[in-house]
Design a protein around this nucleic acid. Sequence first.
DNA 1: GCCGACATGCTTGCATGCAAGTATGGCTTG
DNA 2: CAAGCCATACTTGCATGCAAGCATGTCGGC
Lengths: 243, 243
Amino acid sequence: MSEASELDPFGSKGVTALTPIDSAPARWRKVDRVYDELISAIRDLRLPPGSPVSESDLAQRLGVSRTPIREAITRLAAQGLLHVVPQIGTSVALIKLPEVEEAAFIRCSLEVSAFRRACARPRDVAELRRILERQRAAVEAHDPERFFATDEELHREIFRLSGYPNVWNVVLGSKVQLDRVRRLYTAHAVRSPMLFDEHTRIVDLLEAGDVENGVELVATHTNRVNLLAPGLKAEHPAFFAED
Amino acid sequence: MSEASELDPFGSKGVTALTPIDSAPARWRKVDRVYDELISAIRDLRLPPGSPVSESDLAQRLGVSRTPIREAITRLAAQGLLHVVPQIGTSVALIKLPEVEEAAFIRCSLEVSAFRRACARPRDVAELRRILERQRAAVEAHDPERFFATDEELHREIFRLSGYPNVWNVVLGSKVQLDRVRRLYTAHAVRSPMLFDEHTRIVDLLEAGDVENGVELVATHTNRVNLLAPGLKAEHPAFFAED
DNA sequence: GCCGACATGCTTGCATGCAAGTATGGCTTG
DNA sequence: CAAGCCATACTTGCATGCAAGCATGTCGGC
């Protein structure tokens, strides 16, 4: 995949790196490509919270008309990631601590339930072990990108083992808020070994069917963002809303 | 509005404290009205599963252009309620038993967690009692509409007491699938007394802080749809997908 | 110098026209 | 009569033009 290579030739406003979508393969509908590009940019903070986005600007930058842009914005606004004010403008939603807490609550609740459910079913943790092995490599290589990628794979696989694979999509919807916070945590690399160890223990407990210790660990694991968020708000006040 | 800080990126240097109320709520955007109308029609089965919907037809019927229709369809398609096939047509998504199960799982998980959370906080069940009283009246009047309305109020209030009121919106997103199934259940009126009794017990257990019995009851209460769905699929096969 | 009014440029909301593709009914042909 | 072909009417995807509204820069008056 072509990483965001070129800087903005028009001048450094708020929007910097958005990969044009015309290079993408195939006949996917443009609105889907625009949506993927935008939500990815929002999650990676390439579109920082509070930065203004303009339909015409995005249309020019992504090389499409305003129509697909508008439909993607409609979806993102319904998801709470964009704030659209008619006749004034659209901006990336600021991070709100209550929303982060609620997103963490949703994720924690669903992941704990999925773990409990997976423990009550026949399960094959071989795929989880393979993901863990790749994650170990990512940790040893100090590669946060690959670590996050394997992290998502691992949690998605747990939902698959629970028998409700699509619930992961709901988690994804709430997780964008958490990912934006996590992006602010520059020292996440040093935490990776600890998170990796927790993942390993979670897989062990799942394989053993140890519900009690498992749900406890999954809960603390998925709730850790709440400990970081307030400090990050003090560190990056411009990205957060004053509740 | 307290959201005024989100407008700052557009350059309003002055104090935005005195924003008159007339501009904001006066004219809803057409896309919102179309979305509400469509999702309501889908939930009430006025747009039955599998029925085709045409952008031009809806535009004529609702008296707007295709643009707001398309944006509403985009949101509903992202929610899994509409099936859009490019160059062929759009139809109301069929009911899929696995999706119903997953929606029930999501709702059950979140409601159980909210109940548990509400039990661990200071709580005032007065509003719940008031809702129960209105629900009792609806049951005695054999008014399913009012029963469903109070049902939603009650569950939303529990989320409010949990401290995570917006989580209810996530539940709402999944609940449309369950509501469509419930609409097929013509004999829901006779079940209302039982459901009302369960609601009363849930409120009692919440007031008493009885977590163990409470989560058990909430779980069975929110999972009841799964018992009905297979039979309803046999009764209305045209509305369901052959998995 | 200060303040107010106007014009201009921006924003999003909406309507419409065109393009590309598919299903279908009727016609032609064997 | 049956089977294949083609025109037509439909669908959605996308681009574009216009309308309404707000913020701001500029100019004129005091």
